[in-house]
Nucleic acid binder design. Structure first.
Lengths: 120, 120
DNA sequence: TATTGTTATACTCTATAACTATA
DNA sequence: TATAGTTATAGAGTATAACAATA
């Protein structure tokens, strides 16, 4: 995934964070961290980086001023969409050596073993 | 693998090194490092740890005194055997949710995608 | 008193550079 | 001149502890 995402200017962890933030309702940093199973202090650094790149923005939660709502910017959403395409293409290429039908079987088996989280 | 190996007193990286050293002809630290795709300086630390635990021993190469031959001790071989059993059991448990036959298919597909190295 | 974000700090794993001894 | 092992050191990534603001 790393090399596949290079044209986007993000790495796989940033793609994960961007996915969490862009594919559900707006959420706080803590909620995002919990969805990804990472520490909230790690999320601070991740959001810092994405914010510097202009891909997400922080704004105060209207009802609870302790919280930051973190949302992708317009450009962040564009990068997320493009990243999704690149990752899908990389996955297809990776699975190409398998005989017809085996790719789906592999994906289904892995999904049964490791239920996907919201960060894809 | 980590939790599965705990009863052995080794972690997954140490299991990898022990496998490389115990499942082929005796070899130098550099050869072992190259088989695992890790740096030789990292191998120094790994062998240090395994030696402290009494699982491997260093001896000079008879024909080239720059080299260390690193081999499992008798106890190292016993731990390797037990670790192999624990890992196999953990894998079986992990794959248990899959319908009959799918476990083999999954393993075969993964093997086709990612050819196994000598560290298993 | 508990929670959210933040900062400072420490720890783990790994690699790079430089040294010693051998070849 | 090159190679094997070693050491010292630095970097990435992560977590824990402590603090400020807010609930």
């Amino acid at each position: 995934m790393g090399p596949a995402l290079e044209p986007c200017g993000i790495d796989s962890r940033e793609y994960g964070v961007l996915s969490v933030l862009g594919r559900s309702e707006p959420m706080s940093q803590l909620e995002a961290a919990q969805r990804m199973g990472i520490d909230r202090t790690t999320m601070v650094a991740m959001v810092d980086g994405l914010e510097r790149k202009g891909l997400v923005g922080r704004r105060p939660h209207p009802a609870d001023r302790r919280k930051n709502i973190v949302e992708p910017t317009e450009r962040g959403r564009a990068v997320l969409a493009e990243a999704g395409r690149l990752v899908a293409a990389a996955e297809e290429e990776f699975l190409a050596p398998l005989p017809d039908g085996d790719a789906r079987l592999l994906r289904d088996a892995l999904e049964r073993l490791i239920p996907p989280r919201s960060d894809g």
